[in-house]
């Protein structure tokens, strides 16, 4: 078909193809530039930042310095909050995966009265906004003495992570061929063994997608931690948030701090793109 095209239409195709490339490159730059701006700002001294824009480093590369990072890593508020982020994110992710798998398996393969109604109830909770729970849970946690602790933040994330976890895993587990489960059963596997030896390994892709999704969700959260953590248990997002009030005077804390907080999510993103995308696609409801 190509060969039959006239010279004119081939030329038009060339031109429009060129325009398309230029357009996409410009758009791509627009998407990259803000992040590059943050990175380069974090690599300049505060005096330079207040004197000129970050693009100045292209003409004066000598401005680049790691001083802000060095200073930041000596700042115990920041390093402590980074650790808190880890202490919050890892358990909140593991708990959601484990508890969600147990329930997902029960909803997929066990028999009990009202099974499907219970499951639909959980699905209904998928889109409940976290805002509904902020005030009641603050009172509840205050009452049992875990307000302001890492445990409270973790619990809240687990609670609001579970509907999606159960939804995703139940649907995935339900697709496991019955014969596989029966074969294991005939080999004498009990319910627990069946769960850990057959269901969990077969559910790998869904569990990975869920885990990555939940990990990024919790790592990046600010609102929940803003309310349920205190100065000793706050994650990096909250620690940086308190600095935003004086924006302009402390860009040497904010820029490198924001970049450090992005490093882990970006690494996870680039390492597990496929799982992340499938998690996001399945999690479109959240």
């Amino acid at each position: 078909m190509k060969a039959k095209q006239s010279l004119g239409s081939r030329l038009a195709e060339k031109v429009s193809g060129g325009l398309l490339r230029v357009f996409l490159i410009v758009v791509g730059l627009f998407w990259l530039v803000p992040t590059i701006g943050l990175l380069l700002s974090s690599l300049r001294a505060p005096e330079d930042i207040s004197a000129s824009g970050w693009w100045k480093v292209f003409t004066e590369p000598s401005q680049i310095t790691f001083d802000s990072y060095a200073k930041l890593l000596e700042n115990e508020d920041i390093t402590g909050s980074l650790l808190n982020t880890v202490w919050i994110t890892v358990p909140a992710t593991l708990l959601v995966v484990i508890i969600g798998s147990l329930a997902g398996y029960a909803f997929a393969w066990m028999e009990f009265p009202g099974r499907d109604w219970w499951f639909l109830g959980v699905v209904g909770l998928l889109v409940v906004p976290v805002q509904v729970a902020l005030i009641p849970i603050a009172e509840l946690f205050g009452g049992i003495g875990i307000f302001g602790s890492v445990i409270g933040v973790v619990l809240f994330h687990v609670g609001f992570g579970l509907p999606f976890a159960v939804f995703l895993l139940r649907n995935f587990f339900a697709e496991i061929p019955r014969e596989l489960l029966e074969a294991a059963r005939l080999d004498g596997a009990g319910e627990l063994r069946l769960f850990f030896r057959v269901v969990m390994p077969l559910g790998g892709p869904a569990i990975a997608a869920l885990g990555i999704f939940q990990f990024l969700w919790v790592w990046n959260d600010m609102l929940v931690a803003l309310i349920f953590s205190d100065s000793g248990s706050q994650p990096i997002t909250v620690a940086l948030q308190t600095q935003v009030r004086q924006f302009g005077n402390n860009i040497d804390v904010l820029a490198p701090g924001a970049f450090i907080s992005m490093v882990v999510p970006l690494a996870v993103f680039f390492a597990f793109q496929r799982q992340f995308v499938s998690g996001v696609m399945a999690g479109a409801v959240k």
Binding site: T35, G37, L266
Partner: peptide
Amino acid sequence: LVVFMPMAISMLAAGIIFRLV
């Protein structure tokens, strides 16, 4: 990849990025 990448970062980080922008 470039356009999807901001999905991975926190709204806090995006907020600071755009305060600069």
